[in-house]
């Protein structure tokens, strides 16, 4: 079981089984959804802004593998209280450090799905930059 603990650390299992900020916000100021067609992971992220472009609250829904759902749950904790501008350029490493386990390229897409969806939501409402890797034409993740 040692690899198990290494890979699916308890914190990941905890976020998977009891996701934080679960459920979409009503009303919300921004929303986007995306899926990773390779494995069927789906995530929808909704955002409510406070003063300026501060992310006051965030809620998500989704289904898929433990990594995709736990990483999105961790993301929601990570971004609250920060500005849209700041999150739009958040290095993916900051989230991956939170996830804290080595990920193969296939699983990396699972872990980063929620972050991509959030950046799209921010881009749509606040016009923040959308990194090229998350543009709809990347072909790897379908955003809508």
């Amino acid at each position: 079981m040692s690899e198990f603990e290494q890979m699916y650390r308890e914190v990941i299992l905890d976020h998977y089984k009891s996701p934080r900020n679960h459920g979409l916000l009503e009303p919300h100021d921004a929303i986007a959804e995306g899926e990773n067609p390779l494995c069927g992971d789906e995530v929808t992220v909704s955002v409510r802004f406070g003063e300026g472009d501060v992310i006051e609250d965030v809620g998500f829904e989704g289904r898929g593998c433990a990594i995709s759902q736990a990483a999105t749950s961790m993301l929601t904790d990570l971004v609250k209280g920060r500005t849209a501008q700041e999150i739009s350029v958040l290095p993916k490493e900051e989230l991956l450090d939170e996830v804290g386990i080595p990920l193969s390229p296939v699983r990396l897409k699972c872990a980063l799905l929620g972050l991509g969806v959030l950046k799209v939501a921010l881009h749509r409402t606040k016009g923040t930059p959308l990194p090229e890797e998350w543009s709809a034409s990347s072909g790897e993740i379908t955003l809508s």
């Binding site: 198990f4 593998c65 990594i67 699983r107």
Partner: peptide, 9 residues
């Protein structure tokens, strides 16, 4: 349980 998690374990 998602098949990816099944295969990983």
């Amino acid at each position: 349980i998602h098949p990816h998690d099944v295969a990983q374990i």
